[in-house]
Write a protein that binds this DNA or RNA. Sequence first.
DNA 1: CGATTTGTTGTAATTTAATTACAGCATAAG
DNA 2: CTTATGCTGTAATTAAATTACAACAAATCG
Lengths: 285, 285
Amino acid sequence: MNVLEKIVSSVTSFSKSERKVADVILANPQITIHSSIAALAKMADVSEPTVNRFCRRLDTKGFPDFKLHLAQSLANGTPYVNRHVEEEDGPEAYTAKIFESTMAALDTARQRVDINTINRAVDVLTQAKKISFFGLGASASVAHDAQNKFFRFNVPVVCFDDIVMQRMSAINSSDGDVVVCISHTGRTKNLCDIAAIARENDATVIGITAYDSPLARECTLVLSLDVPEDTDMYMPMASRVAQLVLIDILATGFTLRRGSKFRENLKKVKDSLRGSRFEKKDFTN
Amino acid sequence: MNVLEKIVSSVTSFSKSERKVADVILANPQITIHSSIAALAKMADVSEPTVNRFCRRLDTKGFPDFKLHLAQSLANGTPYVNRHVEEEDGPEAYTAKIFESTMAALDTARQRVDINTINRAVDVLTQAKKISFFGLGASASVAHDAQNKFFRFNVPVVCFDDIVMQRMSAINSSDGDVVVCISHTGRTKNLCDIAAIARENDATVIGITAYDSPLARECTLVLSLDVPEDTDMYMPMASRVAQLVLIDILATGFTLRRGSKFRENLKKVKDSLRGSRFEKKDFTN
DNA sequence: CGATTTGTTGTAATTTAATTACAGCATAAG
DNA sequence: CTTATGCTGTAATTAAATTACAACAAATCG
């Protein structure tokens, strides 16, 4: 929890004077970090030791340390203490909030993701005979994106967003095949079934899903992203972005494992698109 | 440019002692922000005024101010000054770098995006008779994701990743229809054609693409995301995440414009999925 | 209803940290 | 070899933050 959020959440436990300090800081955080304790005390109309006590109450070593923490909270420009979109937000507010909450979600995802599992997943993927990406609903687009990436590596890769096709594909899988099942909740029944079928047929099943979910139990390897989802909107937003970044990481790990010679191959794929595009120089006029 | 990057880039203009200071700071930035000028001077084996002069050279007001800037640079935990993935990076390094570069990309996207255009795009979308999302290649998955979101709003929405279908759909469009064309480069010939066709048929064309690209010229409204793409990997990564966030923003703007009654409808859509899922309580054992 | 205790706040003293002024030294140019 | 320019450190100064303590307010208990 950053200092700004901490101030908001513990505002009830503050004394009268401390609340005055909190109000001033929340109103002009940017000014606060460039003020001395004397200036801030004057703004809040309290004494300097009160400001100091306020800082200590927030588990900082003192005023300078508090400013450091505050600066970090503000690093992303965070003008909105509350990142949840609200009814009365205008375009500027909700745009900023969505960017910020997405970045915050990626930050927690980064801290929580298990590097070891990523490494093992990359291992498995590089040795795969065939890679299949399965997702339903919102996760289907993540699966498509994964296909688009891994397809460039010139490995056999398929992607299905249709349970019948997924089922048939899972039944036909065998030892050496890798099936990647994508689901935010990990509680989509059909996908759990498919993971189980794939496992029964000796495929390695990687789950990009919630830890300790039904789907997770069916997987050989679970890449969990416990991202705090903003449920106000009833749509998966931040979680899906985190999933995509995870795909990027797996794809990057894959290319690095394959070595630099392989990377030239990637460039070839990219260059092959040139014919379908307008040249850049054509449009500098 | 953040302070850390600034130090790296101006390392040549430093004097011998200043470079010693730079080395110590770059090696332990986290320790630096919790040190006094005396402690840092000792670590770098220079005098205190040298440290102070070093700070001034970096356009900060002095040592405390420098620490503030440094704290902000480190806010995202940035241990990697260079965010580009390199050959010799291990799983820990490339995972962190990809998360960081994605977050950095979102941050620049946020700063550069034009709120006014977003607002107009939301206007247009809320009044649309029908919404179509078109994308090819990597952008196809973004289009799919957009469809998944807008579909929940109970508005007529289609998504095509096939040029023939896109073309037919564009030809059949008419006044009041909105076509959203997604392309990072904005130079995919087929998509430019389709945008032109849609426009000729009086549809409103929103482009999620590069500003000043061939596609942008064919659009009624251009949502540009000039995100610095890490081209080392020859894959669209950060740019596509930014596009998705933009979709989230448009979808959010849409729901807010429609009011709170409409939001209950969203909840209904989400609840409708319940039957296809395992209940949470079933798996707490 | 008054006395005592607990907690909050500000004043003044102290300590700590940062900055400035200046002098010595090294390096490079004339 | 001499002079000038620039870099670096010592010591003095100034600014800032913290601590100790006293006064006051509020609440609790007899």
